[in-house]
Write a protein that binds this DNA or RNA. Structure first.
Length: 281
DNA sequence: GTCCAGGTTTTTA
DNA sequence: TAAAAACATGGA
């Protein structure tokens, strides 16, 4: 049910299983900031918005009704039944059930694939505050200005003439050449996201890994967060530890089924919030 | 000064 | 083939 209250505040009623803090601070996205009043401000596709929840009412300030339909409802995956996914996953493993109960408001956002690719190239051997900082600088340097303080994520076209030295101000370090290889291959169409939507998973991973600086983990992140391949299960240092310590009886992530990627997000967040679980290794 | 961060590539044995 | 080392940068 979509309501239009006035010209720049729009709402969606009856949204369950969406907690903005859990969803936007769980390491899947890097362009949202929490404001002093607990709202979240972010940029997607040239649109700036301030999001908040009031009970089960999802509130978007600074958006038109048209934006709501064409951008935000989709981005927040509002039509998917997460309750059902949680039930399916909870039955797979008791520890997973616990992780779900810890943060049941996590959703997998539908990010733009190019932004997900760049973001997770930048994420390698890096920490989340720095990843956010580098992405912000990249947007300010090469994105389109939206208003006084916000910039869009630069397209491959905007970056196509950039050289390594040009990226020096964003301080991405050794990752700059990887970003530029991605720019080149996506910009020329050598790598095409549309094709990846229907490729078998393993083929899509290999396809992405032709980009220099994209290994299995970054590829999985792009497929999960950018192309809605919810069966993808990115394994980073946290997930490695989590599988070993919390799921010693799980042979392989495919035991989590077609929503393994959603399971991964619950487990990742739960692990990051409970580092003491891994103290003795 | 040393260690580490949602990894990947390059070098070495 | 497999295991180290290197890779930029900044905060703890």
């Amino acid at each position: 049910m979509i309501n239009k209250n006035n010209k720049d505040i729009v709402t969606i009623e009856n949204i369950t299983d969406l907690n903005l803090k859990e969803t936007l601070n769980c390491g899947q996205c890097f362009r949202w900031e929490e404001t002093a009043d607990g709202e979240f401000k972010g940029v997607v596709k040239n649109k700036v918005v301030t999001a908040s929840m009031n009970g089960t009412t999802f509130i978007l300030k600074g958006a038109t009704n048209n934006d709501l339909v064409t951008v935000w409802a989709d981005y927040f995956d509002t039509s998917r039944n997460y309750k059902k996914i949680q039930e399916l996953l909870g039955d797979v493993h008791p520890t997973l059930k616990k992780a779900i109960a810890y943060a049941p408001g996590i959703r997998i956002l539908k990010q733009e694939p190019w932004e997900a690719l760049c973001s997770f190239i930048i994420s390698q051997n890096n920490n989340i505050p720095r990843i956010k900082g580098i992405i912000k600088s990249l947007c300010e340097l090469y994105g389109d200005k939206i208003d006084n303080e916000n910039y869009s994520f630069p397209t491959p076209f905007k970056l196509i003439r950039a050289r390594e030295a040009d990226l020096e101000p964003i301080k991405s370090g050794f990752r700059a050449k990887y970003i530029l290889d991605a720019v080149k291959k996506v910009g020329t169409g050598e790598v095409n996201f549309q094709q990846m939507k229907t490729m078998p998973l393993e083929e899509a991973r290999e396809y992405l890994m032709q980009i220099n600086g994209v290994g299995p983990k970054v590829a999985d992140c792009v497929l999960l967060y950018g192309l809605q391949r919810l069966e993808c299960f990115p394994i980073d240092v946290w997930m490695k530890r989590a599988m070993k310590t919390l799921f010693p009886d799980v042979e392989d992530y495919t035991e989590f089924g077609k929503y393994a990627g959603v399971a991964q997000q619950y487990i990742f967040h739960y692990s990051r919030m409970h580092p003491e679980l891994f103290d003795e290794e």
